[in-house]
Simulated scan of single mutants.
Amino acid sequence: MSAARVVVVTGGTRGIGLGLSRELLARGHQVAVCARSQASIDEGVTVLRAGLADPGRVLGLVTDVSDRAAVQALWDAVSAHFGRVDLWINNAGLSAPRGPLVAQLPATVDAVVQTNLIGAFNGSAIAQAGMAEQAGGGWIWNMEGFGSRGEHQPGMATYGASKRAVHYLTEALVKDAKGTPVKVGFLSPGIVATDLLVGDYAGDPEGFEKVRRVFNILGDRVETVTPWLVDQMLGATKHGTRVAWLTKPKAMGRFMSAGFRKRDIFATGEA
């Protein structure tokens, strides 16, 4: 579809969200991003507007995605500014330092669940209601992560449980929205070198070094993954589509060729 679309990317000022936003703008679309602080909005919007002939194609708004009223205000502001919302990407996410659940601070667990799960609930509900009322409907995309499809590792209870719940939520939305003008999809970026990934090992540099080799085999950088993800989302037509970058065959191929290909996805300039 060549016509410009209006896209909301929650958590769109850093990491994968920022990468998705940049690729959408590069393809001529209009993008609204949200973050929890004005400083993050200012920084992200500055990056996204750099080099654009029309800076008005970028809108940034402070939004707490765990607050349903705030998410509704985001929808209302974007609709008023651009006239509609064609794609809503529930990307905002938090992780927690790896470790046993008993060692996780209650505030950390609450923040992860509120952002990853409640944020996806709120974004999905608001977008589904709004898109059902506009001509042509729209697409809701929910971001998968470790745990979404039943993966398990020690120390990942908080993040993994939140993402498993988001997967169930998305499956339910696919059923709920069947036969309506609103389509729902799963977005799976795989392992991407972001501050979220590195932050999982905050305070555990030895643990990070143990898994770094695997990350360098299976992982990629934001600028490698996001162009493909955006093209797949924009080209999707089937309700319930799952867009997945790291498939099992790709992972197997990566492991088989690991001895012949040296990569460091955490180094500047690695593609």
Rank of each mutant, 00 (worst) to 15 (best):
M1R: 15
A4Q: 15
V8N: 01
T10V: 00
G11W: 05
I16M: 08
I16W: 01
G17K: 03
L18R: 15
S21C: 07
S21W: 05
S21T: 06
L25G: 06
A26G: 12
G28I: 12
H29N: 11
V33T: 12
R36W: 10
Q38D: 06
Q38C: 04
A39L: 11
S40I: 01
S40Y: 00
I41V: 02
D42S: 07
E43M: 02
E43D: 12
G44P: 09
T46L: 08
L48I: 01
L48F: 07
R49N: 01
L52V: 04
D54R: 11
D54K: 09
D54Y: 05
L59M: 15
A69N: 11
A69I: 02
L74P: 13
D76A: 14
V78T: 12
S79I: 00
A80N: 07
R84S: 13
V85Q: 13
D86A: 05
D86E: 11
I89A: 02
N90F: 01
N91I: 01
L94V: 00
S95V: 14
S95P: 00
A96C: 13
P97H: 08
G99V: 10
L101R: 06
Q104T: 15
V109Q: 09
Q114K: 14
N116Q: 14
L117W: 01
G119A: 11
A120V: 10
N122H: 09
N122C: 11
G123M: 08
G123Q: 10
A127M: 11
A127K: 04
Q128R: 10
G130F: 03
G136S: 02
G137Y: 02
G137H: 07
M143N: 06
M143W: 01
E144S: 15
G145H: 06
G145V: 00
F146Q: 09
G150L: 04
H152L: 13
A157Q: 12
A157W: 06
T158A: 12
G160Y: 02
K163V: 03
A165K: 02
V166G: 08
H167E: 03
A172D: 11
K178M: 03
G185L: 06
G185R: 04
G185I: 12
I191F: 13
I191L: 12
V192F: 05
D195Y: 07
L196D: 04
V198L: 15
D200H: 14
Y201A: 03
E206M: 05
G207V: 04
K210V: 11
R212V: 05
N216D: 14
I217C: 13
D220M: 13
T226I: 03
P227F: 03
W228S: 04
L229H: 05
V230E: 10
L234E: 04
L234M: 07
G235F: 02
G235W: 06
G235H: 11
T237G: 09
V243E: 11
W245Q: 10
W245T: 02
L246V: 05
K248P: 07
A251E: 07
A251P: 02
G259V: 06
R261N: 14
I265F: 02
F266E: 01
A267R: 15
T268C: 06
G269P: 08
E270C: 13
